[in-house]
Write a protein that binds this DNA or RNA. Sequence first.
DNA 1: AGCATCGCAGTTGTCTGACAACTTTGCCTG
DNA 2: CAGGCAAAGTTGTCAGACAACTGCGATGCT
Lengths: 251, 251
Amino acid sequence: MCFVNAGRAPRLSDDVARQLEQWIAEQQLQPGDQLPTEKVLCERFGVSRAVVREAVSRLKADGCVRTRQGSGAYVAARPGLGVFRLVQTDGDPLASLPPGLSDVFELRYLMETGVTALAARRRTDEDVAHMRDALARMRAALDSGADGAADDDAFHVAVATATHNPQLERFQQFMGQQLSSSRTPTWSAVGHRAGWARHAQEGHERIFAAIVAGDVEAARKAAAEHLVGAARRLGLDPARWPALDAAEGRA
Amino acid sequence: MCFVNAGRAPRLSDDVARQLEQWIAEQQLQPGDQLPTEKVLCERFGVSRAVVREAVSRLKADGCVRTRQGSGAYVAARPGLGVFRLVQTDGDPLASLPPGLSDVFELRYLMETGVTALAARRRTDEDVAHMRDALARMRAALDSGADGAADDDAFHVAVATATHNPQLERFQQFMGQQLSSSRTPTWSAVGHRAGWARHAQEGHERIFAAIVAGDVEAARKAAAEHLVGAARRLGLDPARWPALDAAEGRA
DNA sequence: AGCATCGCAGTTGTCTGACAACTTTGCCTG
DNA sequence: CAGGCAAAGTTGTCAGACAACTGCGATGCT
C-alpha cells in the first residue's frame, strides 16, 4: 500500500482527453460538428490509437462526444455540459460536509419540494405501500437507536417514484448518493440523543400523510419544513429559501 | 444520411459496461472493493481486452470506478450515481422531441420555477443588467425574424446566475444544453409566423419584471406559465403540474 | 530473530497490426 | 436521370506483445 503514483499521475489517455476537450472548446465546435479521425488524432498527439480511443471513450461517457461506426466522431454537447456533477472531481468524495454544501442543499430543496408536491398528485396505492414500508423501518430504527439512513434515503426515493417520472426518480437517487454523508449525523448516536432522528421522523410522517391525502400544497409545505430542519441540523442557514413565504406567512 | 444503426445498436462495449455496472450493484460491492481483473472480465463476457477496457473506461468517467496501474480496479461509488444524465445514450441526440421529453420538461419545470423564485430574492443590479441584455437581443431577434434560441438560453442562464448559487447555475446550463433542440421550433420560421416567438418573449418579460420587482411568488407564477406555454408549443401535456394550483386558482 | 533489500508474479497502461462492420461517396449502368 | 453497386474511409473489435507499476514473498545480511 505505498502507491507511488497516488496524487499526480498524468495518465497519457487522461492528458489526451483533456487536450482534446480543450481543443473542442477552442475551435468552438458546435453540436453536430465532426471531430478529426482517430488516425489524425494519433498523429497530432503522437500516441497510439488505443490511447486516442480511450480518450474519446471518456468524452463519450461525459456526453460531449458521440461516435458512429463508419462515419466518425461528432460533438454532442458543449464540453462539460453532457452530464451533471455536483462534486468537483478534485475533491475527496469521502470528505464530510464539503464546502458549498449549502448550495447543494438548496438545489435539493428546490427539487424535492416540487417532487413531493407532484407525488401527492400521482401516488398510487403501491407507491403509498412502499413509502409506508420505509417509514416503518425508520420507526424501528428510531426506537432501537439503529442507523436508519438507508431507509431515510429509501423513503425519499419512494416519494420520487410516486411521481411516476423516471427522470425525477433518477435525480432523487443521484442527490441521495451525493448527500449520503449529510444524512449520517442525524442517525448517529449523537443524532438520536439530540432528538434529530425523532424530529426527522416526524417530518417524514407529515410528508407521508400529505401525500396519502393527496394534498399538493400540504405536501410541498411538509417537504419544505423537513428540508429546512435537515439543513439546520447540518448547521446550514436555510434563510431566504423561497416557498417558505407561503408556509411562514400562514403560520 | 441513412444511419441504419440509428435507434438500436447494442455496441458491445456499451453492453459490457451496463452488465458490469449491474454486476457491481448485484454484488453490493462497497467503495474500495476490488473489481475482477481485466483478464477475468474478458473471459466472463467473452470479449477482447479492448472492449473490457472501453467499458471500464466508461465507468471510470462515470466516477464509480477507479483504477491503479499495477494494482487493479476499485469501486469508487454506487454505480450510476456519480453523475446525472438525462438522455439515454441509445437515443439519437439529433432527433428532435425524443420520447420521454415530457418527463425531462417536467424536471425542468420543477427546477426552474424554484430557481426563478429564488432569483427574485437575490438578484443584484448586475444580474438584472445581464437579463436585460439577453432580453433585448431576443427582442431584436423577434423583430427581425432571426433565431433567438441562443439568447433564449442566455436569459434563462442569467436568471439562474441571479440565484448566486453556482450549482443552480450549472444545472440550468446543463438543462439548457440538453433541451437545446426543444428550443429550436419556437424560433424557427414557423415559430415566428405562429406567434410562438412573440408569446415566449412576453413570458420572458413577465419573468423579468417579477424578478426586478423582487416579487417571489409572481416570479414563480410567471416562470410556471412560461414553461407551460413552452410545453404546449412542443405538443406536450403539462396538465397536472403542481404549483399551477395556486396560479390557476387565482385566475 | 529481525530487518532491509531484491526479485518475481500479477495487473493495468500503451503499442502495433490486422480484420470486421458500417457509412459515405461517386462512378457506372440501365 | 434514377438506381444500384463498388470502393474508399472510418469506427469497432480482436490478438499479441511489451512497458510501467504494485504487492508480496523470498533471500540474505546483521
